[in-house]
Design a protein around this nucleic acid. Structure first.
Lengths: 343, 343
DNA sequence: TGTTAGCACTCTCTTGTGTAGAGTGCTAAC
DNA sequence: GTTAGCACTCTACACAAGAGAGTGCTAACA
């Protein structure tokens, strides 16, 4: 299916005008706003053809035309070439990042915020905690006579801790010895591989102290679970209100409901883990409640491993070009941050 | 201003019917639904009096009547006596708490969730981190040749940590000595009182290593700031959509905007720290954007010190009685949890 | 053959009008 | 003091008419 250049041009105008205004685009409008050197009647004929080809749709006979999902698909596939951001945008982003980043979580939260502000839509950032990190060692830090803080350290510098009750009369050097033994046993193991029964032979060392043993076990497992957890950051849910297609309170309510279902969102984002950039338009999405939406999603990797996904969710009428540019920039930014963190 | 028993009765019926239905209440409705033994005409006369006294308002001449802010005030002050929850409600609450509480934060989050579900309104839980906790000691945990994890431990078992770069060639026992010295210096001090300049004389110990010094300083300050921070948990923002008074998308948007302004919310909740239970009706609230709302707020204490506040925000038409009962129950629940945690 | 002007047609959106329904206030009777 | 009756008011809803925007079709033109 080849389109003439003129048809392409008109299609592009309809799409971009509709993206900008959210109003059906009429032949007259096109002739007035864009100087194509042809009359509305000619444009009408072309649009009529485009409708037959499935690129345009009419909400009703006397309205202008609206791009179909197929049109958006064609548009993102072969009509746009996302360029660099404007200096202004870059400065804005850099500023936002500088504003408030203390922890890793802050970085992701900021990314979500920036993504939503720039795209004027809801954004999601999903991080795969690095499940490749491995156990380094553990240590007891004394707290008071009956309790100590158990610290677990991973090779990438993450630390997890919990308070454990210690058996009456147990000395610090006994505890150090115990920590040493467990550390030797587990050192270098991937957190995800650590199972409870590996520690069972240590039960003897604990002079059969059941409570301490279960505390230790729980701590190790909790840490390993915490590390593997995927964490979700949402940004700009309020943006929904600014989209005319969601002017209806019930629709917003429904979408907010979806956004609260963290599991569902994770499924959505995990679905397309393979490719780098993924754009899902309208009913291409499997999840029924957002089939009038589009999602632009980028997966980022570190050393070949997927470490996270960011996405923008909005009406099919979305500034794809801008969104992609922003994601590209954010992606590079994160890459730098994580590369630095790793070394 | 004394009301006759019959006026009181009618006022109560109007308020409770309006709370239940959100529709203006007419004399006919009252006569039909509630068997008062008097005719609509008599009720009309009484309602007319109540309107003159400022308790009732008419949206327009031919609508029923609606309680005024003054009526709600009178209602909560002298017409309700919050009783115990039903067994069913108690079971629900206990179930929700059991569902997912691992950390302290989970408890507060659950409290917010429960509060919003039971009240069918937005809930807020604000916690004052215990600023009375004091520095116990610090410790370096080795990570690799260039870095160590700095752990700060408070007397109540809280631990904070950050990764610091260590000077080339610094040995573990040197670091232990350093940690020991700083610990001795700061031990027992309230976190909120720790200032940067206290550590300045240690600068010499660090052989003038500026980087390590600033890292340490930052870690200590960050921890002290983190401990003092008030943390806010929101629940049930989606409930806004279920309130007919907020059917308008713009109004919801405005309210959601307010709810995102964490600082504003903190100000709101901190305003009434003194009293245990505080009910703010309509324009009694100083913040203009929620002057068509009411807020029921309870402050809870531990050993005389304010440790947190919970609140329900909703339209003035609120089930005050139920809300108060629920808060009372949650309050007792938290009391038990924290008493246990402290010992 | 492609392009254009003209015109009738269609559909939505807004405005105005009429009616049903709910509730009130007033008056006169009990 | 209470009640029935009645006129009055106001809203909500339905329906109709007109304006506006856009289309499709036809016939003329280059």
């Amino acid at each position: 299916m080849m389109l003439t250049d003129r048809k392409k041009k008109i299609l592009q105008i309809v799409i971009e005008d509709y993206i900008a205004t959210a109003e059906p685009v009429g032949s007259r409008t096109i002739a007035r706003k864009y100087d194509l050197g042809i009359s509305p009647a000619t444009i009408r004929n072309e649009m009529s053809d485009l409708e037959l080809l499935g690129f345009l749709e009419q909400p009703h006979t006397s309205a202008g035309r609206v791009p179909s999902a197929q049109a958006y698909r064609f548009y993102v596939d072969s009509m746009i070439s996302p360029g660099a951001l404007t200096d202004n945008d870059r400065a804005l982003i850099d500023g936002w990042y500088r504003e408030r980043v203390r922890s890793i979580d802050d970085i992701f939260q900021s990314t979500a915020k920036i993504l939503s502000r720039m795209s004027k839509n809801v954004s999601m950032v999903l991080t795969n905690r690095d499940s490749s990190s491995s156990f380094s060692y553990m240590r007891f830090l004394p707290l008071d006579r009956n309790r100590a803080i158990l610290c677990l350290i991973t090779d990438d510098g993450n630390i997890d801790n919990c308070v454990v009750d210690i058996p009456l009369g147990m000395k610090q050097d006994e505890m150090d010895y115990l920590a040493q033994r467990i550390s030797n046993k587990l050192h270098g193991m991937k957190l995800s591989n650590i199972k409870g029964n590996m520690l069972e032979e240590l039960y003897v060392d604990l002079s059969g102290d059941k409570m301490l043993f279960t505390s230790l076990l729980k701590a190790v497992q909790q840490m390993s679970a915490g590390q593997q957890e995927q964490k979700m950051f949402l940004g700009g849910t309020k943006q929904l209100f600014n989209q005319p297609e969601f002017r209806d309170a019930d629709r917003i309510k429904e979408l907010l409901g979806v956004l609260e279902e963290e599991k569902l969102l994770k499924d959505m984002l995990n679905a397309g883990e393979n490719s780098g950039l993924r754009i899902t338009i309208g009913s291409e999405n499997k999840f029924t409640s957002i089939q009038d939406c589009s999602m632009v999603q980028a997966t980022y990797r570190l050393n070949g491993q997927v470490v996270g996904t960011m996405a923008v969710l909005g009406p099919t009428r979305m500034e794809y070009c801008k969104v992609i540019s922003v994601m590209d920039y954010l992606h590079k930014y994160l890459q730098v941050v994580f590369d630095k963190a790793k070394t």
